[in-house]
Design a binder for these strands. Structure first.
Length: 435
RNA sequence: GGUCCUGUGGAGCAGUCGGAGUGCUCGCCGCCCUGUCAAGGCGGAGGUCGCGGGUUCAAGUCCCGUCAGGACCGCCA
């Protein structure tokens, strides 16, 4: 077997403090150069963080002067401890080898603590803007949250599934779908894995999915995307929606726990302290929520201003960043929603507000074939487009329910981002299809 | 889809009552500086004031249209 015995293993910036006195190789992007008369400092950024390299040799210095910020370089040198270095360690006597041509500088300074470019400018130059620690930190938190979502559900015997993103008919009442051509037949991008995750409850009892969903709704707000990542859960053998809410509570706790455990540096970069999830998240019925928010009693839904008011109320009265609103009117919920047996005009459905924004929708679903026929008939909708879905309920489905978390909204609320686009790598919305 | 706001060198802004493309912070180029920390000092380059039309002796500034961007609302996760 051939092995490169002479190669020095690459060390990440954060590991340098364990290599004092050693000869090391680091590699990354030239984050910033500070050129003084007889000494030059190179700040090299890698996936883990920043490393300082000190150049005194005139030949190396001359070579470094021609390298612009963001050029990819490899540095070999000796690690020394130095209290005046930003991290307490630095690499001296370096050899600097560019791994590519000098980089064309991005239109904003990545080495500054805050990105001064406006959001549209950042999004236009997303491939480089995302390199800024403040932007990449949000994406690391997002990744940790998804890992926590999976871990929490895996621990409760859920099975991860993957459902089609191209479908023959829309999942939720008609209009807002992206149409495309499927070998000459009309097809649509899936608005939700709703039908498929319900059907898979008939296979595994408990399922979840992490995947993109597509909404052709002309919403132009800081909390809407045409494509977003939906964290979907569905479970069988529930008594009602409250069993689903318990799983949601534990899932959120798992997500935030994973964010703390796996994205501590990212949280520090953003100065964010994740909230605790109460052992029991406070819950109010929709009719009560209207009163708290000061909305008219005949209001069919909560407006964003009402949700903000409820968020403040939950924080004030219960010290909770989370609030369940249960029992939304059946008229505002999709046809597969299970009604409240005691008050049939209201549903066994809920929303979860996180700091005053709708983060999750969930509830108990219908599970009897006849109920589906009646629900569609009551809404004047034909059964035929839903045949493949509804038919499954003739073959035995347990009482079940589930929920869907909007990942971008979760991260935006958690990090304090004003716009979900700040925590989305390449957002797709009404106006943006590139990059 | 409705309402409101904003378009000024590469980035972010200011520009008053209509009076010469004026100004600020940063970047860029050149020079200087043994230890920088968003380095510092001196000098320089870079603009069809989004686009089109109108009013005026005179428009970045006022009016109309148009394009682009943003916020709120509707609706949603």
């Amino acid at each position: 077997m051939i092995k490169e015995v002479t190669a020095v293993q690459r060390i990440l910036s954060t590991q340098l403090s364990h290599q004092i006195g050693e000869s090391v190789r680091i590699a990354g992007w030239l984050h910033r150069r500070r050129l003084l008369k007889s000494v030059a400092f190179l700040i090299v950024r890698d996936a883990a963080g920043l490393a300082q390299v000190v150049v005194t040799d005139p030949t190396v210095r001359a070579a470094v002067e021609s390298l612009s910020e963001e050029t990819v370089v490899e540095v070999t040198g000796t690690v020394i401890a130095n209290p005046t270095a930003p991290a307490g360690v630095e690499v001296v006597e370096p050899a600097v080898r560019p791994l590519g041509p000098p980089a064309v500088p991005p239109p904003f300074d990545l080495y500054r603590p805050v990105l001064t470019a406006t959001l549209p400018t950042q999004l236009d130059h997303a491939p480089t803007a995302l390199r800024h620690p403040s932007r990449s930190a949000a994406l690391r938190i997002s990744a940790a949250a998804v890992a926590g979502f999976r871990a929490a559900l895996d621990a409760r015997d859920f099975v991860e599934i993957h459902t089609p993103k191209v479908v023959a008919s829309s999942t939720e009442s008609g209009a807002n779908v992206f149409a495309l051509d499927w070998f000459g037949r009309p097809a649509y991008l899936a608005q939700s894995p709703q039908f498929y995750k319900q059907l898979m409850v008939g296979v595994f009892e408990r399922v979840y999915e992490v995947g993109p969903v597509f909404r052709a709704e002309p919403h132009d707000t800081v909390r809407h995307l045409a494509q977003y990542t939906s964290l979907d859960v569905e479970l069988g053998f529930v008594a009602d929606h409250r069993d689903v809410m318990v799983v949601l509570r534990d899932t959120l706790a798992g997500m935030l726990g994973a964010v703390r455990a796996r994205a501590g540096a990212a949280l520090a970069t953003l100065g964010v302290e994740p909230p605790e999830v109460p052992a029991e998240i406070p819950a109010v019925h929709f009719t009560e929520a209207l009163k708290i928010a000061g909305a008219p009693a005949d209001e069919p839904d909560l407006a964003p201003a009402h949700e903000r008011a409820l968020g403040e109320w939950a924080c004030r009265e219960h010290g909770s960043d989370f609030l369940f609103v249960t029992g939304y009117p059946m008229a505002k919920r999709p046809f597969y929603t299970h009604p409240d047996p005691a008050r049939p005009a209201y549903s066994n459905g809920f929303d979860l507000l996180f700091r005053g924004m709708e983060l999750v929708t969930g509830g108990q679903r219908l599970h009897r074939y006849e109920d589906y026929l009646a629900a569609l008939a009551a809404r004047g909708e034909p059964v035929e487009p839903y045949a493949g879905y509804v038919d499954a309920f003739r073959h035995g489905m347990p009482p079940h329910g589930g929920f869907a978390i909007g990942l971008e909204r979760f991260v935006a609320r958690l990090t304090g981002a004003a716009n979900v686009r700040e925590v989305t790598a390449f957002p797709r919305d009404l106006h943006r299809l590139t990059p």
